[in-house]
């Protein structure tokens, strides 16, 4: 590191230092915001300014998580939600890309399906909830179906847009080299859509959690959505808050798994 810095000119070193300082300032304020928020919350709860029965408090959330963890149930809930989300996310992404490829392949099919895609996209998928339960039964499978439904349409539409927005001259170039449709797909359309695919993955992380929690609200015997529902009905706001905190951690974690791919591929 130090050897490297010798090569920098004074002004450049100054510039780099400025960048570094700016980054530190941002991190500092990020910490201030979270610590301040939690501190204020705790303070208001302990002094009785807000009712901890309804608003809970950071310390009560931590205790609740520890209690739930000791009883062993917590891991079942986390595992159930995580399982549903990851499965729903994966199925929707793979199926969505596959359908988008089919729609790209046949322009006629695309034209035929267009109005239906628009309607299905604007339909609130939760409206299908009762039917899903009747068809696939309540519990884990209903939640996964809900999760897939929510992610699927947006995946199809985003990927299809990415496919058909490919520069027509690039397709002409491939054709002038005698590429067949498979080659155009695999050597041009798919690699060209990679940055869009990464964006879809990021959107789907959020969407799949929406699907899972909605599914669990509708009908479930386990999962964080179940825990939130249960907690609010039993007026155990600590349980509700604890579940939400865990949800934040899980969803954030999934996002951070996806985001390095973005950095890697979006540069191009």
């Amino acid at each position: 590191m130090k050897n490297k810095q010798i090569n920098y000119s004074k002004t450049h070193a100054k510039y780099l230092k400025k960048l570094k300082t700016e980054k530190l300032i941002v991190i500092f304020w990020q910490i201030v915001v979270i610590v301040g928020f939690l501190g204020l919350w705790e303070l208001l709860a302990t002094t009785g300014a807000i009712d901890p029965f309804f608003f809970s408090s950071p310390s009560r959330i931590v205790t609740t998580i520890i209690d739930l963890g000791r009883s062993g149930n917590l891991f079942i809930h986390i595992w159930t939600s995580l399982y549903e989300t990851i499965l729903g996310f994966t199925i929707a992404t793979i199926l969505g890309v596959f359908i988008a490829i089919l729609l790209w392949w046949s322009e006629r099919l695309r034209k035929v399906m267009e109005p239906y895609l628009i309607v299905i996209n604007s339909l609130p998928k939760i409206a299908l909830g009762p039917m899903i339960i009747l068809w696939v039964g309540s519990g884990v499978s209903a939640t996964i179906v809900m999760c897939v439904l929510i992610c699927l349409v947006i995946t199809i539409i985003s990927m299809l847009n990415a496919f058909i927005s490919c520069d027509s001259d690039k397709i002409l170039l491939m054709k002038s080299m005698h590429a067949n449709k498979f080659q155009i797909l695999f050597k041009l359309i798919l690699p060209n859509a990679l940055p869009d695919f990464i964006s879809v993955l990021k959107i789907n992380v959020g969407m799949s959690w929406v699907g899972t929690i909605m599914g669990e609200y509708l009908s479930s015997k386990a999962g964080l959505g179940y825990l939130i529902n249960y907690g609010s009905q039993m007026l155990q706001l600590d349980v509700v808050m604890a579940s939400i905190v865990l949800l934040c951690i899980l969803a954030g974690g999934m996002y951070f798994i996806v985001s390095p791919f973005e950095k890697k591929y979006k540069k191009g």
């Binding site: 520069d167 001259d169 690039k170 002409l172 170039l173 990679l194 191009g268």
Partner: peptide
């Protein structure tokens, strides 16, 4: 040969 080079970035 086209107006733009159309090199594939990946």
């Amino acid at each position: 040969m086209f107006q733009r080079d159309h090199l594939f970035e990946w």
